[in-house]
Amino acid sequence: MSRTVPWPDGMECTLKTIVSGETFVSGKTNLVISTVLGSCVSVCLYDEAAGLGGANHYFLSSSQGQSASYGAVAMEHVINGLMRLGADKSRLRAKVFGGALMKEGLADIGKKNASFALEYLQAERLPIVAMDLGGFSARRLHFHPVTGKARVVRTEAVPEINHKIEQSSNRVELFN
């Protein structure tokens, strides 16, 4: 059973969900690519004239492996996939999302992932027409590959609450 989502122009679109380490390209008008991002990044590329687009979801900026979990491999999969379908690289436009710092005190992997995307796109001379990067909350992304339209919903970060238990007499009090 496939899930559908209403799109702003009134069309019902089938969702194609991608997860970390996956890429997807399409020219279907009734399809929306969906993913959830934390520190990961998704670069959405589209050629509006050809009616083609695609997205990746990577979680490692380093290019040490051959998996689409790595930014460079994920980018090549989308670019090559679009060109195989008939996109012209000179018409590709980019939208970049994700790269959040999901937990304070950990290495800022999201910042590295976002920086990689921006540097890669600049080196390949692919214009960035929209981005929503960084911050402290996860994002749900819906991307319509044919038109390049994107919708992002941010989740509210839930702060960690440290509870202290204080015992005096027979009372227990919790403090934030």
Rank of each mutant, 00 (worst) to 15 (best):
Y46V: 00
A130I: 04
Q66W: 03
V25R: 01
R139K: 15
G21P: 09
L106M: 12
I165D: 00
I18W: 00
L85T: 03
P145Y: 11
S61E: 11
L60Y: 14
V73N: 01
N162E: 09
D108L: 10
N56Y: 03
V146R: 15
A55P: 00
L85V: 02
L141I: 15
E119Y: 06
V36H: 11
Y70I: 00
K103N: 10
E173L: 11
A49V: 05
G135W: 11
F97N: 01
A114N: 07
A100L: 03
D108S: 08
L92Y: 13
T23V: 09
V19N: 11
V36S: 12
E76R: 05
T155P: 00
R171Q: 13
M131W: 09
A68N: 06
A94V: 07
Y58W: 03
T4Y: 14
G105N: 07
E22F: 00
Q122F: 08
R91H: 14
A94W: 06
S2C: 01
H142M: 15
L85H: 08
G27L: 14
G134A: 07
F97D: 00
G10K: 09
Y58P: 04
Y120K: 14
I18F: 02
F59P: 00
A130E: 15
A50V: 02
M83L: 13
C13N: 03
F97G: 01
C13G: 01
R151M: 15
G81M: 03
E160L: 04
R125F: 02
Y58H: 14
V25D: 01
T29N: 12
L15R: 14
I33A: 05
L60Q: 10
N80V: 05
G27K: 14
V41G: 05
F116G: 02
E48I: 03
D88C: 09
V19M: 04
T14Y: 11
